[in-house]
Amino acid sequence: MSNSIVIIPTYNEIENIEAIIRAVFDLQRDFHVLVVDDNSPDGTGACVKALQQEFAGRLFLETRMEKSGLGTAYIHGFKWAIDKKYDYIFEMDADFSHNPSDLLRLLKACENNADVAVGSRYKKGVNVVNWPLYRVLLSYGASVYVKMVTGMRVHDPTAGFVCYRRAVLENIDLDSVRFVGYAFQIEMKFRAYLKNYNIEEVSIIFRDREKGKSKMSSSIISEAIWGVLAMKLRSLFQRKKF
């Protein structure tokens, strides 16, 4: 059995899901894949079910009844993977903004010294392709803001391409994680940081999706701006709960 599981949350990713699954299974390492689908009306879940016949014992599907947010999808996947005793648990988008081959580099980092390996867009400059300037400025500005507020020295705290050792996720109270949008990524890294886990960044090139629609919204941005400040204040008075 593989010791590594890649969690891919989906909602209406029919244009990407088969290709991303095949790309992971084509790697020279035995990764398993768990798709957490929010009952996509476009048939994403049905596509995964069909592929399970070809990739029996390697491809898994958890279907939730409604669209409930990125953070809760990952929490669902984390608990599933912990229960199955995977040693290395990955987050990855379905839309090829993360290069599946970089899974190998994140895994290597965690097999060496890292407790959390982050696929970083900003470790070495700005490595983003096909994003409009306002998105680059928004994302990079958010990273600077998060570092200032939290004290973390992570260049890309909003990154969604991550490898966790299982012990890290076992020692975080997943039921108390508050954020459900992209700020979820910040909160998870912050909780690992407060527990003194070794967070290392692996420089990657991030490419904007070519197919499907972005899930970014104004509410997600608001959560990141105001929520991070509230999270930092809570950590000062309720550190044991983090």
Rank of each mutant, 00 (worst) to 15 (best):
G71R: 08
A73Y: 08
A73F: 04
I75T: 08
H76Q: 13
F78L: 04
K79T: 07
K79Y: 00
K84D: 01
K85G: 01
M92I: 06
D93K: 02
A94I: 01
S101A: 15
L103E: 04
L104I: 14
L106A: 04
L106Y: 05
K108T: 13
A109C: 08
N112Q: 14
N112Y: 09
A114F: 03
A117G: 02
A117N: 06
G119V: 08
G119C: 07
S120H: 02
R121V: 03
Y122W: 14
V126P: 09
N127W: 05
N127F: 07
V129I: 15
W131S: 12
L133T: 13
L137A: 13
L138P: 00
L138M: 13
Y140I: 07
G141C: 05
G141Y: 05
A142E: 10
S143N: 13
V144G: 04
V144I: 12
Y145G: 04
V146N: 07
K147G: 15
V149Q: 08
R153H: 14
R153A: 11
P157N: 11
L169E: 08
E170F: 02
N171G: 15
N171L: 10
I172G: 11
D175N: 15
V177A: 03
R178H: 12
V180A: 11
V180M: 10
A183Q: 12
E187W: 05
M188T: 08
